[in-house]
Write a protein that binds this DNA or RNA. Structure first.
Length: 572
RNA sequence: CGGGGUGUAGCGCAGUCUGGUAGCGCAUCGGUUUUGGGAACCGAGGGCCGGAGGUUCGAAUCCUCUCACCCCGACCA
């Protein structure tokens, strides 16, 4: 592609509306332009990358035996009413009417449509298992779109739906998709992690999210350094401490702690580490107020606690509410002699001689022990795991925390949709049977943004070769210098003929401008061609990543570039 | 949905308090000189100041309403 004839409007300055690096760089490199809140134009450069991702996804899905279809973006309300989701889905479902006043929505997902399709077309168990996928524009009317493409309202998604006769077959279909997803993210050249997700009320044994690792990721994910356990922080469980159930060695004592309220202050006061203390939190739940106990150095996981208390009303009580309810301030709250229902985190079970609030303002208790000083409460998993916690799946491992961007989600749906929409096939016995469904999503456009979050430097994007809009950029310093221009043109053709994707910067711009744009655009390999180099008989080949450069003789440049690109593409 | 903010040239902004000829930098177009890491000079084009209504001799500026976008929070397969 010739830059002189391409719409590639780069920006020197960061647009004010962009908060995160991928959004800034996508705007600055001329990949996208905003049309409205959460909706974007894709310009030539951005579209090339989007298509790259799309093709990688398509290739792997086909390889995994899924069949590509293309379903309508606009869907009639009737289908959604059949499954009840017309009323359940809420404000994110963009609804509208046609000329005749009939209700429609712009599809945020396609379970209803695909189920309708297969209930009309699949009759026999012999047609199963089947897996249909599409790459489609979706619309979710996000309450607060942000971060550019990362969390837009309109976005490109690959969604796949599998249909199986029984659970075992579904398990297999799921596994095939799981492996295909790994292959997809590997093929994109991204560093990623598959993590366990909560399969929740829908049941089924499994759901996994795929995260691209990036410091700016919205999700925290925990993973074991020894086995393959990995989970979203919301769901991650730490292993229980070893049974160091040491007997009490100290008497319980009430100590005046006039200035010590926070865990830090209390630990400092008693000259102990925070893990020797116990913090008490009051929460509201459907069953009324409840006291949660955590080790001093641990954080409450509100989702776990909320699930445990089955509460729609779950929330932390405000300090003034605590005072009103118990008569003491939050800094001196404690479980001993409390009349409230108490649930303690598992990590407290084998603690002895710990320190906690005395339920009297300005006092704490030391040497507190279960059974002797207060009854053992209910124990449960209430906390966020921490870096270094032991793994709950294996003996050897410890957990590490990373940040990630969710780019894929696989889910066993079971018969939720097939049942409510009456989809059956005849089984071997000639009886009607309701197939089980799985669904598998990948945020295609989000991958583009996530890839940038993971691969950039101060000057711009540093594309992994598999997603790069161009493998090679040729910087022609001055198109008016005939020998250089002719050489660049010849090289351009040679590289194109070899199957590489090449950007030729043939603009009448100064070199500095071209370098800055090349940095922004982020092609992995570039070559600088000018009159001086032609005279010397060698031109400069540079690598975007790391910025290394070498002089290559004119008659070898073509081969060198082709080989280097092929090396990168083959992963070496 | 609650709170905050911003709408003035393609982009980034000043001007608004205190009403009186609509500006600056970058970008764009033409010219000259330049040309190996975001050039210099000369000249030019480009705006119903988000929209509607009002006050006023006169509104980017004051008042009312409205729309859009951004940020924080709540929400989120």
């Amino acid at each position: 592609m010739r830059l002189s004839k391409t719409l590639l409007p780069t920006l020197k300055e960061d647009p004010v509306e962009a908060q995160i690096v991928s959004h800034k760089l996508m705007l600055r490199s001329g990949m996208i332009r905003q049309l409205g809140a959460g909706i974007y134009n894709w310009l030539p450069l951005g579209l090339r990358v989007l298509r790259k991702v799309e093709n990688i996804v398509r290739q792997q899905m086909d390889k995994a035996g899924a069949q590509e279809v293309f379903m309508p973006a606009v869907q009639p309300a009737e289908l959604w009413q059949e499954t009840g989701r017309w009323d359940q889905y809420g404000v994110e479902l963009l609804r509208f009417q046609d000329r005749g006043g009939r209700d429609f929505c712009f599809g945020p997902t396609h379970e209803e449509v695909v189920t309708d399709l297969v209930r009309n077309e699949l009759r026999s168990y012999k047609q199963l298992p089947a897996n249909f996928y599409q790459i489609q524009t979706k619309f979710r009317d996000e309450v607060r779109p942000r971060f550019g493409i990362m969390r837009g309202r309109e976005f490109l998604m690959k969604d796949a739906y599998s249909f199986d006769l029984d659970q075992q077959s579904l398990d297999n279909s799921y596994e095939v998709m799981f492996q295909a997803y790994k292959e997809i993210f590997k093929s994109c050249g991204l560093s990623f992690r598959a993590v366990e997700a909560d399969s929740g009320a829908i049941g089924g044994s499994a759901s996994h999210e795929f995260h691209v690792l990036a410091e700016s990721g919205e999700d925290a994910i925990a993973s074991c350094d020894s086995c393959d356990y990995a989970a979203n922080l919301e769901k991650a469980v730490a292993g229980l401490q070893d049974g160091t159930d040491t007997p009490p060695t100290a008497e319980m004592q009430k100590v005046a702690t006039p200035e010590a309220k926070t865990i830090d202050e209390v630990s400092e006061f008693f000259a102990v580490t925070p893990d020797k203390t116990c913090k008490s939190l009051l929460v509201e739940s459907d069953e009324g107020p409840c006291m949660l106990l955590l080790r001093g150095d641990h954080e409450l996981n509100e989702i776990k606690a909320g699930n445990l208390l089955a509460g729609n009303n779950f929330r932390l009580l405000e300090p003034h509410e605590v005072k009103k309810l118990t008569g003491v301030g939050v800094g001196s709250l404690g479980p001993v002699a409390s009349k409230l229902k108490i649930i303690a985190d598992n990590s407290l079970a084998n603690m002895s001689d710990f320190i906690c609030g005395a339920n009297e303002d300005g006092y704490h208790l030391t040497g507190v022990n279960w059974e002797r000083d207060l009854p053992s409460p209910q124990f449960a998993d209430l906390r966020n795991v921490q870096e270094g916690d032991s793994c709950s799946r294996c003996d050897a491992g410890s957990l590490r925390l990373d940040r990630g961007i969710e780019v894929g989600h696989v889910f066993k749906l079971g018969d939720k949709y097939t049942k409510s929409m009456n989809m059956t096939v005849l089984n071997q016995d000639g009886r009607e049977q309701t197939p089980l469904m799985g669904c598998y999503g990948i945020g295609v456009s989000r991958i583009v943004a996530a890839a940038i979050e993971q691969n950039h430097d101060d000057n711009g994007i540093v594309w992994p070769i598999f997603l790069a809009p161009f493998h090679v950029e040729i910087l022609l310093i001055n198109p008016k210098e005939a020998p250089a221009a002719e050489f660049a043109e010849k090289l351009y053709q040679q590289l194109l003929d070899s199957g590489l994707e090449v950007l030729l910067d043939d603009r009448h711009e100064r070199l500095g401008v071209k370098f800055k744009d090349a940095d922004l655009i982020g092609a992995p390999i570039r070559v600088v061609i000018g009159g001086r180099g032609i005279k010397e008989g060698a031109v400069e080949v540079q690598s975007r990543k790391g910025g290394s450069s070498q002089k290559v003789a004119l008659n070898e440049v073509g081969e060198t570039l082709i080989n280097r690109a092929k090396d990168l593409l083959s992963g070496s």
